[in-house]
Each structure stands twice: as C-alpha cells, then as structure tokens.
Design a protein around this nucleic acid. Structure first.
Lengths: 292, 292
DNA sequence: GTTCCGCATGAATCGATAG
DNA sequence: ACTATCGATTCATGCGGAA
C-alpha cells in the first residue's frame, strides 16, 4: 500500500474547494487561535473568529465522508480578565451549519506554561471538540485501549461474592454493569481526558501539540489507508504522524515558511537536486488524494 | 467566632429574593442537570434549561458581593448522540446578564468506572465555571498551593555557592533569576485542572460532588467567617464543608427529603425532642446571615 | 550503557510603557 | 481613551553532555 502525503501552499478557505465531496476520513487540526494582535501569524480578532472559521468548517463538512470525524483543537484566550466566548459561539454556529457536536475531549497539558497572576492560575488544558456529520461514524476503540493500572486490582478484588453474583445475574439486562467482565482484563477503554505534556524541543520546529495527540485520534478514528486532512498544517505534526501510521494525508498551509519546512522533511533528497517550484509540485502532488 | 449554617426549604428562584444585596462572599453549586425525563429530581428539559436558570443567576448576581465569586459545577448531557449546547448558551446568556466569565476549571474524575459505548468513551470530567461581578475579586491563592514537582528538590538543593552568590548580586538588576527566592520553596501554585476522585458513599445520600471540590474552592475564594451560599443544596456537602472550615453558609433545597436529611445532621439532638416546624424554623434561622 | 544534572523552551497572562 | 509592544513571572519536560 502506497501512502501519499500531499501538502498544499495556500489559504484553506480557497484550497479546500478543490477537494472532492465525501473524500476525507478524518480531519484533525489546530487552527490559529484568536489573537488581538493583528500582525501575528494568522492572527484573527476574537470578535471575527466565528465569522472567519465558518466558511472553512463548511468546506470541511462537505469534504468529510459521512462516516468521518472532525476533531478541532482549540482554547479561548483571556481578554481583559475574562475568557472569550468565541469557542462557545463557534460550537453553536457549527451545529446550525449541520455538524453534530458529538463530544468534547480534554487535553490536560501536564507542563503548562508557568506564571503567577493575582486572579488566575495557570491554564493547563485545551479543548478537543469532536464533530460528526452523522450519528454513525467509524470509531476503532480497541486501538486506543490503555493498561488497566490498579483500578482492577484495588477495586475489583475486594468485591464481595454477593456483588459478583448480583452483577452476573444482570448480564444482558441492559442496565447495571457486569463487573465480572472486567476481572480478567488488563486493558481498559480510555476516558475523554488525555494527559499529555507539550513537547518543548530545543530544536527548531516547535509544534503546537505533541505527536501523541494526533496519533491517538488517528488510531481512534481511522484505519490504514484512510485519508487524514489538516487544513492548518503548521509544522506538519499531523501529517508526519499520519504518514508513519500508514494513513494518507493532506496538509494545507498558508505560510511558505512552514510549508517549505514540511516539504523539506518530506522530500529531503529532491530538494538538494533542484530548485523547488511550489506551484507545479503541489498541483502534481494533490492529484492523488481525491483532489479535483 | 460563631458559625451559622442556615438551611431553607423552598424554590431557589423565590427564596433567593429574601437575601440582601451584596451579602454573600461565595456561591458554589451544582444545579440539577438537564434531563429529558420530566419526572426526575429537578429534571429540567435541555431546551428550557437556560430560561429556567437565568432568573436564579440574576438573583445570585444581586446577592453576591462585588468581591465575591460564583462557581457553577455543570456538565451537559448527551442527547441523541450529541452533547447539548445549553451550557454554552448559558455562559453567553449570563454574560449578557452582567456576569464576567472569568475562568473554566476542569474537574477530572480520576476513578471513573470503565464503561463501553459504541461511539463514546467514559465521560470523566466536569466543568467548574467561575463567574464574577467585577474584575477585582478575592482570591487566596496561597491557601491551595500544592507540593512542587521534583524540580525544586532535585535542582535547588544542589546549587553551587557560586550560583547563589552570583544570583544574589543580580537582585534588582532586572535580569537573571533571583534563585534565592526559590530556596525555601517546596510548594507551587496549582493549575485550572483538578484531579479528584468521586466519592462512592455506601450511605444513603449520594452527593453530586466529593467534599474536596467545595473545600478547594472555599479555601481559594473565602476566608474564615465569610458567607457561602449553595442554592441547590442537595445532600448539603457544600454547607457541611463550609461549616467545618469555619465559614457561615446558606443552603436552599426544594425537596423536603433532602432538606430534612441535612437538617437532621445539623441538629441531631433537637430533632429528637420536637417535631420540626419547617416554616417557622427556617425563617428564624435565616435571620442571621444577612437575610431580610 | 546507565544515571544525573544543566539548560532551553513553551497557543500564558498581567501590568506598565509607549505610540 | 485606546491599542500595540515588552518585561516579569514561573514550572514540567526532554535533550544532551557529564559522571
């Protein structure tokens, strides 16, 4: 199975229009967060954020397969001592657009940025909003099972015989948990809280999120050979992870600086030999993943 | 210092009107969650939730001191495979009402029971929404400091004398860290993610949250002698914790069953002697905490 | 090869200073 | 007044060099 990784230089709002309807299995992205500073990379003012994002989410809704999932990594900034509400507004607006807001995962950032303020603690979590087109979607839960830890050992071993019997009798009743099922397991399903540290590399390329984040969701929502899309590629973490996991992927990036950096890492040899012609190469590349 | 714990039987929407303006230091509550089943305890239909809650939050805004804080423990239900948006809508509506949405804490429920659904993992977190009347509010951060990671222990003890001297000479220079500040420190400020296990009581009254939850916030937002309010008292966890921490408290509960249970625990002796007269006693009791 | 330790580095936030 | 920039604060992590 040949795996393709297509990266495209351009504005997602426009580039996404080239992708075919119902062609992508999974979208994972971390868009530029709202920012009051206009000059910053992709800086979108909080008041304009929803308005700016909706045309993009509309395209994502179109290109996603009915069985596919969209996971959006985002967190609202503090502005004048308050949390902004643009994420709340975005969720409500996306539902009106036709998305189902299926779930909200929490990414607990174990190594949050330090700091001390008179009226606030360190912000050490971000949202991972799960959206779907349809109530039925692909989810490969067993792929992300985790070692059970001491939950089983401490809790289940102390169950009285009565408890075990009582629960056993309830099997199939549809209500009440069949605890005995868990006794011989050493793996459990995870929860909707993910504990991951941010990667603080001394190296050049700093990613917004650690590799483990897209890795976990790609395992959960795709199988090998599926197509993963990141419309705000940045340093390309999603695409590199997808490639390593044998998933095809598409990455869109508006800044040539990031685009070129990812490109170099994808085709290190080619670049030594010839001057890159971005226009030409990207057109050629995107032909393979169901792109118009 | 005499600590008063006043509990009132009645509908918060009405009872709150009896409380004085700017009289409460801290509101902590976990209102009945939205529920499609009307018959359930306090079941409010998701579509009506915001409409139902706003008159109450309006009263809370009135009774809270300008330096006070309101912490709302809430989590949206899954309905037809989707997360409801009533919490999002509530936040937006409360801001329009005049509240500042200062912060969102995450309560990570550590000991969530493993469970399995075809398209969903175990929900192991809840929101703790912090609202304020004013950008300046009381916050006693040092009260909730947590043991530091191993950074301090491993690092600071081993500083060379040179390092200490060098840094001391830099004090006030505006550059370089004043490491001497760190030498006697073994505690760090916490983050906005709380890791608490749910309490599994064998007793009758199961609380919506563990005692550690109100305890943490009461430490953070009040000092001894302050007044804490829980407009949806339930099993009275907030009030019992407040009492033990030398804070006055008011609890409002609509269900006689819960009300009586809390009352029994507050005045075990009295109840043996005389038949309780709820109307009379509560009126008398609430006279002390700044109640009309 | 292990283990230990120094160091750089963050989707942070506030308040002060500058245009 | 209102906005843009800058410095100070602070802690978990992973890398790389040292023991």
């Amino acid at each position: 199975m040949e795996i393709k990784t297509d990266i495209i230089l351009g504005d997602s709002k426009k580039v996404l229009k080239k992708l075919l309807d119902n062609s992508v299995d999974f979208v994972f992205t971390s868009p530029p967060y709202a920012d009051q500073r206009k000059s910053t990379y992709g800086g979108i003012h909080p008041d304009k954020y929803v308005e700016w994002f909706l045309p993009i989410s509309e395209e994502l809704l179109r290109v996603l397969k009915p069985t596919g999932t969209f996971v959006l990594n985002i967190k609202e900034k503090v502005i004048k001592g308050e949390r902004s509400t643009y994420v709340m507004e975005l969720i409500i607006a996306m539902r009106k657009q036709g998305w189902l807001w299926t779930e909200e995962f929490i990414w607990h950032k174990k190594n949050a940025f330090p700091g001390k303020w008179p009226n606030r603690f360190r912000d050490s979590w971000e949202r991972l909003l799960q959206f779907n087109k349809d109530k039925k979607f692909n989810m490969y839960q067993e792929e992300v099972m985790v070692p059970m830890g001491n939950w089983a050992k401490t809790r289940l071993k102390n169950l009285s015989e009565t408890d075990k019997t009582r629960d056993e009798s309830k099997v199939g009743s549809g209500f009440g948990k069949n605890i005995s099922n868990w006794l011989d397991r050493d793996m459990a399903y995870p929860t909707n809280v993910l504990h991951l540290a941010t990667e603080c590399n001394n190296k050049n390329h700093s990613a917004a999120f650690p590799e483990a984040l897209p890795k976990w969701f790609i395992k959960l929502f795709t199988k090998q050979g599926d197509i993963v899309l990141d419309p705000f590629m940045g340093s390309g973490t999603t695409n590199f992870v997808a490639k390593r996991m044998n998933r095809n992927s598409i990455g869109i990036e508006i800044l040539p600086e990031y685009y070129n950096s990812v490109k170099e890492q994808l085709e290190p040899i080619k670049l030594v030999l010839l001057e890159p012609e971005q226009q030409y190469e990207s057109t050629e590349l995107i032909g393979s993943n169901g792109v118009r």
